[in-house]
Design a protein around this nucleic acid. Structure first.
Length: 673
DNA sequence: GATCCTCGAGTTCT
DNA sequence: CTCGAGGATC
């Protein structure tokens, strides 16, 4: 039975009203009717639709939750990449940013910036075709994200249909986040039901948005601010970014009320302190502010470095610091026997995660900071990840606080601990008799950049050593599938896989093999240099200390370590056993004559993630063309290759005026060389 | 002898 | 990523 005309008219009328009130409530934050009245409209619409199912359309406000669960999140390629932003951590960075912009634009005039809070949520791209939401995708790596349309449709602050006269195609970018109050309420509900809770609003938003079932997302207190424009068709952009945002607001897209236009670096810094002061009172979390050159003409002139625009920067608030108590200090034993003091902390929530350990590096550091057991300390997760003990609050030191002493004996094997004159690190003298050193050596041997044995994780190595099944790396190759399968957390399938990856690892290269041996002070670069210089393991093994020193970048200290390593019978036996098990490598290719190759004499530094290849691949490509890859930026660096989410090396390069290459430029260079 | 440039080693949490 | 220290360079 088809619905009567009157019902159809009423349904249309109701939908229009509901959309209007959604706009008043979510976008303008200025509702005209009470929540109860709104609910009544919604109920009436639901009732009518239930009576006349043929009137239900996918963009009805009742259908936001209606979509069926998806089986997996589909990959979406962004037509225009979603950018990442460079970071500023202090005033100087902002002033330098503003100076660079004026230099590039060749102007003395103060630049007009659009300043906005930087929300701690999830960047999402929304695609509207003829005013209808057709696709919502997460940022992902900037080029490819995930299709989350089914969940985004449940967010009431995101219009399903735009108001007024939107263009034929409008792709907008926005930040999806959870307001603090909604987050807390959600956690309390979860707690009451015995479900798992989220540690912070950001994680909650990220986790919820990637749910497969939209009914779950519908219960989550999402909100959104739109802040950028992607691809468009049928819209002539106004002259300024802020004007474009005004237009978005008229189409029903929610814009942060805190966006301002400011003049020059001083205007930016004023805005920053203003937001820092208001931060605590905002209903959502912000981790900084963003400045964008407001005029599109200027933006276009400035252009991009990799996937970061030159015309915008994120000015971050200082890392959060928290107080906690040092419950103890334990000493970990590394591969080389190095004893590292680690503070065991009363777990504390800092910058989004719970921290319970923090390295103290070495005894000098412990003394410098004068950390004692029982002390209250300040913990920081500076900009990045690794927790750090900033300082001790001496006023809060209890009477019985215990001074940290370097143990005289290794906590693992009981051997003597020695500290060389003038060295910062203390070492266990147990050598490979020390289970800790044996485990760490095996881990190193199996690591990706060494023999790359997949499936041989820490837990497995621990068991192999503790059960005495493995003494040296050579023993690994003698083990059978059945023996591996006898370990805990190891099924038949994993055991078979492990045996297969051991088999695969036998085919390696001389530099990898030398690196895997774990000779003190011989890392990847030195291993490669030695392999190159000697060409074969035999000639290196027979070389005198003086001859070893002839290798570029190898001096007396490293040469002595190498010689000492090969002088030990045990080490020679292990190498022989490994080769007997079939570990082999191709003869070294003839060394490229010095200064040969199109990139000879050029030094590259890589930062951030590249799309087309991994960092390792990029290094290999550069080396194959005669170039060098280094880990840190200096005046001698020829190029810094900037991928997505670059680290501090980008900043260093800008300070030193080193030439930057984005991925396109880098690929072009490889192609043309 | 001083300074700069690199490399090596160790580390946190999800 | 950061710190410490080895090696090269002036």
């Amino acid at each position: 039975m088809s619905a009567p005309r009157s019902a159809a008219a009423r349904v249309r009328e109701l939908r229009k009203q509901i959309e209007h009130h959604n706009y008043r409530y979510y976008v303008l934050d200025d509702p005209e009717i009470s929540d109860a009245e709104y609910d009544r409209l919604m109920q009436e619409l639901k009732a009518l639709e239930a009576q006349h199912p043929d009137l239900i359309t996918p963009d009805s406000p009742t259908q936001r939750v209606g979509a069926a669960p998806v089986s997996e999140l589909e990959e979406v390629v962004h037509t225009t990449p979603m950018l990442s932003l460079e970071n500023a951590f202090d005033e100087e960075d902002v002033i330098a940013f503003d100076r660079r912009i004026r230099e590039r634009l060749e102007t003395e005039q103060p630049i007009e910036y659009a300043a906005e809070p930087k929300l701690d949520g999830l960047a999402v791209s929304f695609r509207y075709e003829r005013g209808r939401l057709v696709l919502a995708a997460t940022r992902g790596d900037g080029t490819r994200g995930e299709n989350v349309t089914h969940n985004v449709r449940t967010i009431k602050a995101v219009p399903i249909e735009l108001r007024g006269k939107p263009p034929e195609l409008l792709e907008v970018r926005g930040e999806v986040f959870m307001p603090i109050a909604g987050f807390k309420a959600m956690n309390e509900r979860a707690l009451a039901k015995g479900e798992r809770t989220f540690v912070n609003p950001r994680n909650a938003a990220a986790g919820s948005l990637r749910q497969l079932d939209p009914r779950l997302a519908a219960t989550r207190p999402f909100d959104v601010f739109f802040y950028a424009i992607g691809e468009t068709r049928g819209w002539t952009l106004p002259a300024r970014h802020t004007e474009a945002l005004e237009q978005l607001r008229e189409w029903g897209l929610k814009i942060s009320p805190l966006i301002r236009t400011v003049q020059g670096a001083s205007g930016c810094l004023e805005y920053y302190s203003d937001m820092a002061a208001r931060r605590a009172t905002l209903p959502y979390e912000i981790d900084g502010v963003v400045y964008k050159v407001n005029r599109y003409v200027q933006q276009r002139e400035l252009g991009y470095v990799a996937r970061a625009p030159r015309w915008a920067i994120a000015h971050k608030f200082p890392a959060h610091e928290e107080h906690t108590i040092v419950r103890g200090v334990e000493f970990q034993v590394g591969r080389t026997g190095a004893l590292t003091p680690v503070a065991r902390l009363e777990p504390v929530f800092v910058g989004g995660v719970t921290v319970s350990n923090a390295t103290l590096h070495n005894m000098d550091e412990v003394r410098r900071k004068d950390v004692r057991i029982g002390d209250t300390v300040v913990i920081r997760r500076a900009g990045d990840v690794i927790p750090e003990v900033v300082k001790v609050i001496v006023d809060r030191r209890p009477k019985n606080a215990k001074v940290v002493e370097l143990p005289a004996h290794c906590p693992v094997c009981g051997a003597d601990v020695e500290r060389e004159e003038g060295e910062a690190v203390a070492r266990c003298t147990g050598g490979l008799f020390c289970p800790a050193q044996r485990k760490e050596s095996l881990r190193h041997f199996a690591s990706r950049r060494a023999l790359d044995i997949d499936g041989l994780g820490s837990k497995i190595i621990d068991q192999l050593v503790e059960r005495g099944m493995v003494q040296s790396p050579a023993d690994l190759y003698a083990l059978t599938e059945e023996q591996f399968a006898s370990l805990e957390r190891m099924g038949e399938k994993s055991a078979a896989n492990l045996v297969a990856s051991l088999e695969r690892s036998k085919s390696t290269t001389l530099p990898r093999f030398l690196y895997a041996l774990g000779i003190r002070d011989v890392g990847e670069a030195t291993a490669a240099a030695l392999a190159e210089h000697f060409g074969s393991l035999e000639s290196l093994q027979e070389a005198t200390e003086e001859e070893i020193q002839q290798t570029p970048d190898v001096g007396p200290v490293v040469a002595a370590h190498v010689r000492h390593f090969f002088d030990q019978e045990h080490n020679r036996d292990v190498i022989a056993a490994l080769r007997a098990h079939g570990v082999h490598w191709p003869a070294m290719k003839r060394k490229r004559a010095n200064g040969e190759g199109p990139l000879a004499g050029k030094t590259f530094v890589l930062t951030g993630t590249l799309d087309a290849m991994s960092r390792d691949e990029a290094s290999e490509r550069i080396a194959a063309l005669g170039g060098k890859v280094s880990g840190s930026v200096s005046k001698k660096t020829s190029y810094v290759v900037v991928g997505a989410e670059p680290g501090s090396k980008l900043k260093k390069a800008q300070e030193l005026g080193v030439e930057l290459l984005d991925e396109q430029g880098f690929l072009a260079l490889l192609r043309d060389s």
